[in-house]
Design a protein around this nucleic acid. Structure first.
Lengths: 149, 149
DNA sequence: TCAGTAATCTGCAACTCGTGCAGACAAACA
DNA sequence: TGTTTGTCTGCACGAGTTGCAGATTACTGA
């Protein structure tokens, strides 16, 4: 994802207006590697700007996804997560607490694949499922805690 | 997934009862490679057994997943899909009509992965996104048709 | 075969996540 | 500063799924 300033320009270039709500969300996303949900962004945004609407968070995330500035990540069930990292990468998910982390995979284009006949397939999305050390070491694992953002 | 008869035994061995509803769903799933949703299974089941409840379909799918007899497939958004194929395999999804097909990938265990530190990771789930030939050739693509089941 | 027990089914309400809509509001521009 | 037009908020709604309660039915043991 580009910097808040660059995003401001990008929005304006599209005929979209710049608002304090959007600027705040740009800042909350920039450099954020926690794969936040709309809800968790809304909570953090509410701290700085009480009264901001969850609807606005969804709206702005959708805009950013449509512009290719962030990616929407699906890791199976649960709310959508947003990822400002648009590099070619994949994800690992802790199935206990829900934490998502970026993972870089090389050699994926050399996989031998059987069954893609008749499909115009683009790059694969790889999700590793497992358990993070915190949850593995904890006898009372935080079940789906708010690990994001 | 094992045969309906074997599943009957497996259910009984767990102290679960065998009901006509479950037997019907076992049959509908057996050898089914369409990755049906609960809703589509419900529709087909309703043909043979009018009055069967969608709730029962969900319940039975959850049981089968818990027993490891079928897998729940998440392909990003939309309803969950169920897959009686428990072989080590992956999926390709048509982003236009929603069709899901099984894909066999070899060499996935030789991927060079950076970022899994501190994770007890199990096998990766790989989802290829693309467009099937039907949708690619159709100028008026069937948008999210009922391709499953 | 029959009664008792415990699991199951059904229908409905409720819940989560996300979107559509309308009216108030505010950014951009002349 | 006024006008235009996009945006924000709040709310209702929709899809997908689950919780719950009461009626029903499968199993078990006599």
């Amino acid at each position: 994802m580009r910097s808040p300033d660059q995003l401001t320009d990008a929005f304006r270039a599209r005929g979209l207006k710049m608002t304090p709500q959007r600027q705040l969300l740009f800042r909350l996303l920039h450099g954020n590697d926690t794969h936040p949900t709309a809800e968790s962004l809304f909570e953090r945004a509410s701290h700085e700007m009480p009264g901001i609407s969850l609807r606005t968070v969804y709206q702005t995330m959708n805009d950013l996804v449509a512009m290719g500035e962030i990616e929407q990540v699906s890791v199976g069930g649960g709310p959508a997560r947003f990822d400002p990292n648009t590099d070619d990468h994949h994800h690992v998910v802790c199935d206990t607490c829900g934490t998502v982390r970026d993972v870089y995979v090389s050699g994926a284009d050399q996989l031998a694949i059987d069954g893609l006949d008749g499909f115009d397939a683009v790059a694969p999305a790889i999700v590793f499922h497992g358990e993070c050390t915190q949850c593995a070491s904890s006898s009372n694992p935080p079940h789906h805690s708010t690990k994001e953002n």
